[in-house]
Design a protein around this nucleic acid. Structure first.
Length: 199
DNA sequence: AATTAGATGTTCT
DNA sequence: GAACATCTAATTA
């Protein structure tokens, strides 16, 4: 039930933090109600030496500037003109690491998620994918970008970490433009979960 | 079951 | 103007 503290986010190892985020609870409060999901799939993006990151080569733009904020900040942006992707900024201020949340298992607020997704049944398609999860949680890049995850709008709650044999490691999705960095094994998902974007 | 195409809008060259 | 950390429906097999 306790929120992840600043210390958790400000460490200098995105890959480790990404792995530890598996199984944690992601909570979003809105006027319509509270929605909670368990994180089942993540990807790590490093501020340095990672061509797949928006912050590659120290690049600083209007869009990615929140990646340089302190750990425990949200980074939400629009992709393909349609989907809102939710990231957790990590590392200290000035170091642009981030973890992309790619899938969740719904825990609370089923009705609200179904309504927002225009669905009538709870199944894998409700929130297994970075775009659909944001829709289910009501995350919008104009509203939820640059928020402090220690506040009461969007936050993460602690849960036991998984062991390495409870997770699967793979390359990241949709970053073919990144050259050899596309081969980095920085995507992690829960082995025994159905709530995964794809194997 | 697997592959393809179209949607959509913001950012960066 | 091209590319983009995607999803879905429609098409092909």
């Amino acid at each position: 039930m306790s929120k992840l503290p600043l210390d958790f986010y400000e460490r200098d190892d995105v890959v480790l933090i990404a792995k530890e985020l598996l199984g944690k609870k992601l909570c979003v409060q809105s006027a319509e109600g509270l929605v909670v999901g368990k994180i089942t799939e993540v990807e790590a993006y490093a501020g340095r030496n990672d061509k797949a990151s928006h912050a590659r080569d120290g690049l600083r733009t209007e869009r990615n500037k929140v990646m340089y904020a302190k750990g425990g900040t949200s980074y939400v942006y629009l992709i393909y003109g349609i989907h809102h992707l939710f990231n957790v900024v990590t590392n200290i201020k000035g170091r642009a690491d981030a973890v992309l949340i790619r899938a969740i298992e719904p825990l609370e607020g089923f009705d609200l998620m179904l309504e927002r997704r225009g669905k009538s049944k709870v199944d894998k398609s409700l929130s297994s994918g970075p775009g659909t999860l944001s829709q289910a949680l009501g995350i919008n890049y104009k509203v939820h970008n640059g928020l402090n995850l220690l506040d009461d709008l969007v936050w993460l709650e602690d849960q036991p970490c998984l062991t390495d044999d409870q997770m699967v490691t793979s390359t990241r999705i949709g970053i073919d433009y990144a050259g050899e960095d596309a081969l980095k094994p920085w995507r992690f998902y829960m082995k025994d979960s159905v709530w995964i974007s794809k194997k």
